[in-house]
């Protein structure tokens, strides 16, 4: 297959097919709910996931900002113009009505009409020990993006302070970021690193816990606290406000304590491919 065709397919899959772990978590949440409104909301989400998959249409009309995570194998010797190819794939996907044209110049608000722009698509790179490329597409919708936050709190504030901050923010957000959502929390690092950690946490597979025991326990406590608010599906009341709370952490300066928040709505869209070059073609 041609590379560009592969990338357009990746984008299409990302916005039309919700990962199985998210669908399963919603199924489980629906069984736990008691209120008929909460149940009706979750059952419509599940119906929508099925219909989008069957008809191959976007799950949500907000197909977001195109964001890609590219992992490059250290032994991969076929690194191409990744950003240029992704930009072209995004343009093609937009012309095929797979993506809504969302990208505007920030001050004039002029729309590029093809979802490209200065610095867009957003591409994050990292290296790993391997001989291929891995690309993850995770479109970022505005409902959750507008709720993102960074706090530089007093160093040594500890876990209680994090619990308080998160709970205050969750209450202020209410039903706006389409609960039940996935809360990604960055703890430590520098300010920009902390936001990146929160972002990575927000798209982590749902069953994975933080490898650090203390942080895994904090994830569990935060999930109980968030679901204890009763905000519920779409903010209309219920037992499930978050499907997961995921923390990613890094060390920080002795005089700082950055905390960041990034969310994925229930339509936690992410699709990945591994790419290998064989002669003139690419294999998935």
């Amino acid at each position: 297959m041609y590379l560009r065709e592969i990338l357009v397919k990746l984008i299409e899959k990302g916005v039309t097919h919700l990962p199985g772990d998210v669908e399963n978590a919603l199924l489980a949440a629906g069984r736990k709910e008691k209120s008929s409104i909460a149940k009706a909301n979750i059952s419509l989400m599940l119906k929508n996931i099925g219909l989008a998959r069957k008809e191959n249409v976007p799950i949500c009309q907000d197909t977001g900002v195109p964001v890609f995570f590219v992992r490059i194998g250290r032994r991969c010797d076929h690194v191409f113009d990744i950003e240029g190819e992704l930009r072209q794939a995004v343009r093609i996907a937009t012309s095929k009505s797979i993506l809504r044209p969302n990208i505007v110049e920030p001050l004039s608000r002029e729309n590029s009409l093809d979802n490209s722009g200065a610095g867009i698509p957003v591409v994050h790179y990292s290296l790993f020990d391997g001989s291929h490329l891995e690309i993850t597409f995770a479109p970022k919708g505005a409902g959750t993006e507008n709720m993102s936050a960074l706090w530089m709190i007093r160093p040594g504030s500890g876990e209680k302070e994090i619990e308080k901050l998160v709970l205050e923010k969750v209450t202020a957000m209410g039903g706006k970021p389409c609960p039940p959502y996935i809360l990604g929390i960055g703890v430590g690092g520098t300010s920009e690193k902390c936001l990146e950690l929160a972002k990575i946490a927000s798209i982590r597979p749902l069953r994975e816990k933080n490898k650090d025991k203390r942080l895994a326990l904090l994830e569990g406590r935060l999930l109980s606290l968030v679901n204890g608010t009763g905000i519920g599906p779409m903010g209309l009341g219920g037992r499930t406000t978050a499907l997961a709370v995921n923390i990613e952490s890094a060390s920080c300066h002795t005089a700082t304590m950055p905390i960041a928040l990034a969310l994925s709505c229930w339509a936690d869209r992410r699709a990945s491919i591994a790419l290998r070059r064989h002669g003139h073609t690419w294999m998935v």
Binding site: N41, L44, M45, K47, N48, L51, A52, E55, V57, P58, I59, C60, Q61, G143, C178, P233, M234, L236, C265, W266, A267
Partner: peptide
């Protein structure tokens, strides 16, 4: 009137 966010395939139908 609240419609479930993200349910745009159903909405379009």
């Amino acid at each position: 009137l609240a419609f479930t966010g993200g349910c745009a395939a159903v909405g379009a139908s």
